[in-house]
Design a binder for these strands. Structure first.
Length: 226
DNA sequence: AAATGATCATGG
DNA sequence: CCATGATCATTT
């Protein structure tokens, strides 16, 4: 059978995962060609290529929205670059971190929890030695945090958000958090945004985002393929 | 070698 | 600038 681009969003989680599973074993080059797209020689200036290609193949709504990729299904799509041993090569970006107006924000209504409540992970071979076009999509899997995983995510989120609320954002480094960290997330070092300063006043600082640490996503791969 | 901090492209 | 898609590249 011929693989064709979906014209509509999946209507069920099962259909989404079925679509994802059909992509396993194919290369990014093959998927790009079938979608009439060019595969970049390297991802240096095309960092979002893999993710956007998979969005297309799974029927995710295009564009940038602070919501899930499949809002009707409550599912977020994440590609996960893996090495030859099947381990994550990079941390995983979760979402932008608001640095002001966070009073009353709780884990339950946070963007992080919303995004990670249900994720369709699509591992992709990503060894730097393999040209993007030859990288293969691996077996996708659906994940919902276990109570233990959610507790760990929540603890990190609460620790980091409290520091932000207390005006300590500039003292937060990627070393904070056991499974999730806060790191710069911007076009360049000149980007600045409002944050709360040490004395409660507004300050300008580099925009930040939440990222899942590799040890965490490595665990997800292990439990999915154990 | 691994991890942290920095950066690239795109659309609204 | 915010937010999406992430990976790059310098520092440890």
């Amino acid at each position: 059978m011929t693989l064709t681009l979906p014209s509509t969003a999946p209507t069920s989680v099962a259909q989404l995962m079925e679509r994802a599973q059909q992509l396993a074993g194919l290369t990014l080059g093959e998927l790009a060609q079938l979608a009439q797209l060019e595969t970049p020689e390297d991802l240096r200036r095309h960092k979002g290529f893999s993710g956007q290609l998979l969005e297309l193949w799974l029927g995710a709504s295009a564009g940038s929205k602070p919501e899930q990729d499949f809002p009707e299904l409550g599912v977020e799509l994440k590609t996960l670059p893996i090495d030859e041993a099947g381990r994550p090569m990079e941390t995983t970006y979760v979402c932008y971190a608001h640095l002001t107006g966070i009073a009353g924000l709780t884990w339950e209504n946070s963007n992080v929890r919303n995004k990670l409540h249900q994720v369709c992970w699509v591992p992709i071979e990503a060894n730097r030695q393999i040209p993007p076009a030859e990288r293969r999509v691996a077996s996708a899997f659906l994940w919902t945090p276990t109570p233990e995983q959610e507790a760990a995510l929540r603890a990190d989120w609460e620790e980091i958000m409290e520091l932000i609320a207390l005006g300590q954002v500039e003292s937060i480094t990627a070393r904070h958090g056991q499974v999730m960290q806060l790191r710069p997330k911007a076009a360049d070092g000149n980007a600045l945004t409002d944050a709360i300063g040490r004395d409660g006043q507004f300050i300008q600082t580099r925009p930040r985002g939440f990222y899942l640490k590799k040890t965490f996503t490595r665990g997800l791969l292990e439990e999915a393929f154990a």
